[in-house]
């Protein structure tokens, strides 16, 4: 690990200034991912800007919109009554992620900033376009069992690792950002990026921009929801495939649906077409199968991850069945 300086600005503006001034500076909150990356030599910031003391730790309801401050811990969000009653899908997704110890350190904003867990990204002896643009993608011809089936490029087939973000994508959250040019709001689906030709960029944050929180609009998705995570061990493992499913059902008809998947793409993979295919339908296994087929039409697989297509389909059907209790 290289030497680095450490600052703890007293205000949000000072934090943003500190980051803007220094090219390699990074914000640090829970540090559950950044420290690993530094220890492995994947990143070597010269300055860490500790934001933990900024007043961004809150869960509040404003005009039916749930606001979660960026520094609210994953464990706090998962257990909060406003979350478990209004957006239980988010709570389920958070509890499916990491371990209790990690959730006690990890923050809402930090969770969104997690880098991929692709082995080749972490091992600096092997080429990786995300770590070193232009060096090549080791995963494409390597061990790619965990890798993307949607939206990948010939530059990168890594997947986004978060569970929380899959639920937030399904719930149409908005990311609140403060930066050198002022504040802005980013729809969740536009926060993370597909790899394209710039796999080194995970998201659309600009230099010096700080996530201050997220807003989740009121939704009818309080009852018929399910977060399914399929993984290689029962706890503390990243998803092979995960599904956030939320249905609004009345009179045995699906009024609206939200579906997003994890473990399948470089960003939380929202399934708009499959959602449309469900609207107006009765919640039956057969209709869920049709939606699952629609959902996986654009899948492209690699040497070791072809299983993810049937697993994704089956997981969608399973999650929808659980959500609909059929």
């Amino acid at each position: 690990m290289n030497q680095f300086s450490y600052v703890r600005p007293a205000s949000q503006q000072a934090a943003i200034d500190a980051l803007t001034k220094d090219k390699s500076a990074r914000f640090i909150a829970g540090g559950t991912n950044l420290l690993d990356l530094m220890k492995n030599g994947v990143v070597a910031p010269e300055k860490l800007v500790d934001i933990n003391r900024l007043p961004l730790k809150s869960i509040t309801l404003n005009n039916n919109t749930l606001h979660i401050g960026a520094l609210t811990l994953n464990s706090e969000v998962a257990a909060h009554t406003l979350v478990t009653t209004r957006h239980p899908l988010l709570s389920q997704a958070l509890l499916a992620g990491a371990s209790q110890q990690l959730r006690n350190m990890a923050t809402t904003g930090g969770n969104m900033m997690q880098r991929t867990r692709c082995s080749y990204f972490y091992d600096i002896t092997m080429p990786c376009n995300k770590r070193t643009p232009g060096s090549g993608c080791s995963a494409i011809g390597g061990i790619n069992r965990m890798h993307a089936i949607f939206g990948a490029s010939d530059q990168c087939i890594a997947v986004h690792p978060s569970d929380m973000c899959i639920a937030l994508a399904a719930l149409d959250a908005t990311v609140l950002v403060a930066g050198p040019k002022g504040n802005r709001r980013i729809p969740f689906g536009e926060f993370h990026r597909l790899p394209g030709n710039t796999p080194d960029k995970d998201n659309n944050l600009g230099k010096g921009e700080l996530i201050t929180g997220i807003d989740i609009p009121a939704s009818p998705f309080t009852q018929n929801i399910y977060y399914l995570k399929v993984r290689d061990r029962a706890s503390y493992a990243f998803a092979l495939v995960s599904v956030a499913a939320a249905l609004d059902i009345s009179n045995n008809t699906i009024r609206s649906a939200r579906l997003a998947m994890g473990g399948v793409a470089h960003k939380p993979w929202r399934l708009h077409e499959a959602e449309k295919a469900l609207i107006g339908k009765t919640p039956t296994i057969e209709n869920f199968r049709i939606a699952a087929t629609v959902a996986t039409q654009s899948a492209r697989t690699y040497k070791h991850n072809a299983f993810k297509v049937p697993m994704a389909q089956n997981s969608l059907v399973t999650a929808l069945s659980k959500a609909a209790a059929v």
Partner: peptide
């Protein structure tokens, strides 16, 4: 333990990716 044979190198050489059973298993 998974080896990328192009490099002869382990790719899951950590507790997160090499899955020792946990209590939930």
């Amino acid at each position: 333990a998974l080896i990328d044979h192009r490099y002869g190198r382990y790719v899951n050489n950590n507790y997160a990716d090499y899955h020792v059973p946990v209590n939930a298993d």
